[in-house]
Nucleic acid binder design. Sequence first.
DNA 1: GTCTATAGCCAGATAGAC
DNA 2: GTCTATCTGGCTATAGAC
Lengths: 204, 204
Amino acid sequence: MKKGKDENTEEQILEAAKSVFQAKGMDGARMQEIADKAGINKAMLHYYFRSKQLLFEAVFKNMFSLLAPQLNAILNGDSSIEDIIKNFTFNYISFISEHPYLPNFIIQELNRNPEFILKMKDNPGFPNLVKFKKQVEKEVEKGIIKPISAEQLFINIFALNVFPFVAKPLIMAFSNVDNTAYEQLMEERKTEVANFIINSIKNT
Amino acid sequence: MKKGKDENTEEQILEAAKSVFQAKGMDGARMQEIADKAGINKAMLHYYFRSKQLLFEAVFKNMFSLLAPQLNAILNGDSSIEDIIKNFTFNYISFISEHPYLPNFIIQELNRNPEFILKMKDNPGFPNLVKFKKQVEKEVEKGIIKPISAEQLFINIFALNVFPFVAKPLIMAFSNVDNTAYEQLMEERKTEVANFIINSIKNT
DNA sequence: GTCTATAGCCAGATAGAC
DNA sequence: GTCTATCTGGCTATAGAC
């Protein structure tokens, strides 16, 4: 029973820390607020994670390991480039709709502290472009898609999918839409984005 | 001579504040660091701007008014969609290379405090999609470009141009390139991105 | 306008009882 | 493991001399 409580408390702390860190960032987050959300007191946070920095790193690794598999789907699938793009776009936008703060959190904290990514690179599940690059080169050679570097194509796919969530406030302001209309735009993008990319690269 | 010193000090403070706020964000920035960079002491910061919050707002408005004209170029030009895209992409990537922290700063702080954009919306130079939308609809009707909503096209242009800078650390890690190779990729994008978009939407 | 010194507060971290 | 109480340091902001 003791162990059960252990893991439960730790889980509650991580959950609370996740929501506060995502909303406020490392610098803006307050240990008191995390404790309140977790339904415990500040001392417990230090008992379990020793310091704010270590708690933050635990949350960050957690978040990152949610994002990585999504990217591996695009990078290590066996299907054609066209199918990879379609599946990735559809799934990624669904995924992010349930974790709207995630990409922004990762990006913000990596910009604050770029060396942080090094700790992640050791992980064997860390995304890399090797397989994707081969597939792109194969399809370019076969004439299925127009000449494009795998890196540029990857950046484009990534940008078109992720950016609208990261820049939500700007996009809402410029296109002058309310929250409902914004959600509607994102819903449309589940198919629009894939078509946009494929139209651009596919040979006819 | 007194007035000259005034404006000079104020300018130095803004310059220092800009660099510190961009690098650390509102919460991470320290008034002491800003004072050191400006070559004065903390008391002067309060003498000129009263509080950290007000200094931050001055910097933010400053930054925002650098970004807005760049966007207006895309939204209120008289040329064809194709030319708008080409010019915007080429110019924007050059512009950002000189202000690499700018888009991230704007996005980060708007996510921290989305109501902030309301203060900007009053400004007459605030970007809007009205004219761009008309041009897109005209060219779709004439059959010059394929059917696409102006909002989605705008998001795509914006995303492809801005995101690579915002997500620089992630992109460098995934595509496993060093800083030089990253700069090279961005240089290529000055033409690549426009071609990518135009390939996708242009009727042949 | 510019400085030094300091007030006043708040956050992270720890001590120690239970 | 969990709590209350408290230490300690650092930060924004101000007072007041020059």
